[in-house]
Computed example of a mutant assay.
Amino acid sequence: MNDRTERLGLPMLYAGQAQKELTHNEALTLIDLLLAGVVEEVGRDEPPGDPRPGQCWIVGAEPEGQWIGHARWLAGWTLGGWRFVAPREGMRLTLAGSGMELSYRGGVWHVGDVHGHALWIAGQRVVGARQPAIAIPLGGSIVDAEARAAVADIVATLQQHGLTA
């Protein structure tokens, strides 16, 4: 039997274990950092000088001080000091201040990426999968120049927004 849970690495309780409250409280502390977790900053290498209990950071690639050995992990400050959680595939957190989502996929933290098949607002589908390129109109006469310029602007805007190739 493992002494930690498979997914989040929370400490397990055992029958006959002395001072179970310590193990239980450690698990609650880690859950408190992770459940609907919010991080102050991503990629910081040095611990902040005056963290508040409950604040978290995604440690950078070259950690210093008390963060050494925890590159790209979640570091959370508690009344008992720093707690570290190794990232797991699919872990999701929110970046404080911006509200952007952080997700851990393929061994990398992704900031602000949104994945889906469509964007719906107020029950209306407003964006779907990217469509093939729209051909720029060619030919016509001089009188057609303004219409072609307007269509070209529309195509450029669609391409800029990533809606067409």
Rank of each mutant, 00 (worst) to 15 (best):
Met1Cys: 06
Met1Asp: 09
Asp3Trp: 14
Arg4Gln: 15
Glu6Cys: 05
Met12Tyr: 08
Gly16Trp: 07
Gln17Pro: 06
Lys20Pro: 10
Glu21Ala: 12
Leu22Gln: 13
His24Glu: 11
Glu26Ala: 15
Ala27Cys: 04
Thr29Met: 10
Thr29Asp: 09
Leu30Ile: 09
Leu30Met: 14
Leu34Gly: 00
Leu34Ile: 08
Leu34Pro: 00
Val39Gln: 06
Val39Met: 08
Pro48Ala: 10
Asp50Gln: 12
Pro51Glu: 03
Pro51Ala: 06
Gln55Phe: 01
Trp57His: 07
Ile58Ser: 01
Ile68Ala: 15
Gly69Asp: 02
His70Met: 01
Trp73Cys: 08
Trp73Lys: 03
Leu74Gln: 07
Trp77Gln: 06
Trp82Gly: 04
Trp82Thr: 03
Arg83Leu: 13
Phe84Ala: 02
Val85Leu: 08
Pro87Thr: 00
Gly90Phe: 00
Arg92Gln: 14
Arg92Met: 06
Leu93Trp: 00
Leu93Tyr: 00
Thr94Met: 05
Leu95Asn: 02
Ala96Ile: 01
Gly97Asn: 02
Ser98Gly: 04
Met100Ser: 09
Glu101Ile: 07
Leu102Cys: 05
Arg105Tyr: 10
Gly107Trp: 09
Val111Gln: 12
Val111Thr: 12
Val111Glu: 14
Asp113Thr: 13
Val114Asn: 07
Ala118Thr: 10
Leu119Met: 12
Trp120Met: 13
Ala122Cys: 05
Ala122Leu: 12
Gln124Trp: 11
Arg130Asp: 01
Pro132Glu: 09
Ser141Gly: 15
Ile142Lys: 12
Glu146Gln: 13
Ala147Leu: 13
Arg148Cys: 03
Ala149Thr: 11
Asp153Leu: 11
Val155Trp: 01
Ala156Gly: 11
Thr157Ser: 12
Gln159Pro: 00
Gly162Asp: 04
Thr164Pro: 00
Thr164Lys: 04
Ala165Pro: 00
